[in-house]
């Protein structure tokens, strides 16, 4: 009987300890390790009462999301406050000056069978007008977006 009581008592203690979980310092280390394993860098981790706060600047939003998912996956982390920012993006440069870009676009559109589409280029920004068959629409927009442009105003109509 005594052994049984002891067993129950031991189990209760074990349960209590596991529920109590790791300390914030342990958790901070665990999150840092997980981030390193997942190849996420540039993140500073602070854990308080099981809540992880992520700060720092990362490459893009996918890294921000990944860091959050990694931190959440650590056992003992109750929630994650994601204060990561994404680094400012470099300014896009057009692949060619406007006249050359216009010529390139017209060539590419012709090759793609988008003869109904017209383009006007200003500082790398392209305004697309005209009408192309509905079946060609996506192809024509792709063609324009792949020319190395830095802005778009899509007014292209879907015809029959």
């Amino acid at each position: 009987m005594k052994i049984k009581v002891l067993t129950v008592f031991t189990l209760a203690i074990a349960l209590f300890l596991s529920a109590c979980g790791k300390s914030d310092a342990d958790l901070t280390k665990a999150v840092n390790d997980k981030l390193a394993a997942d190849k996420v860098t540039g993140v500073t981790v602070a854990v308080k009462d099981g809540v992880a706060t992520l700060t720092g600047e990362v490459g893009d939003i996918t890294v921000k999301n990944k860091a959050e998912a990694s931190a959440k996956a650590v056992e003992g982390i109750k929630s994650v406050t994601n204060n990561l920012t994404t680094k400012p993006l470099p300014v896009a440069t057009p692949s060619a000056p406007d006249p050359a870009l216009t010529a390139k676009l017209n060539d590419a559109l012709k090759t793609a069978g988008c003869t109904g589409a017209n383009v006007a280029v200003e500082n790398g920004k392209v305004t697309v007008t005209g009408e192309v068959p509905a079946a060609k629409f996506t192809t024509c927009i792709q063609t324009v977006q792949q020319a190395g442009i830095t802005g778009i105003d899509n007014q292209l109509k879907k015809g029959k």
């Binding site: 893009d60 939003i61 996918t62 999301n65 400012p88 993006l89 470099p90 300014v91 896009a92 440069t93 500082n123 790398g124 920004k125 442009i149 830095t150 802005g151 778009i152």
Partner: peptide, 25 residues
């Protein structure tokens, strides 16, 4: 973001720049 996540998943390497008026390139 789902498009960028998809690019990561399907093996597309990409770079981001900012075009005219906040356009994501």
């Amino acid at each position: 973001q789902s498009l960028l996540e998809l690019a990561n998943q399907n093996g597309t390497s990409y770079e981001l720049t900012e075009g005219d008026n906040g356009t994501l390139v």
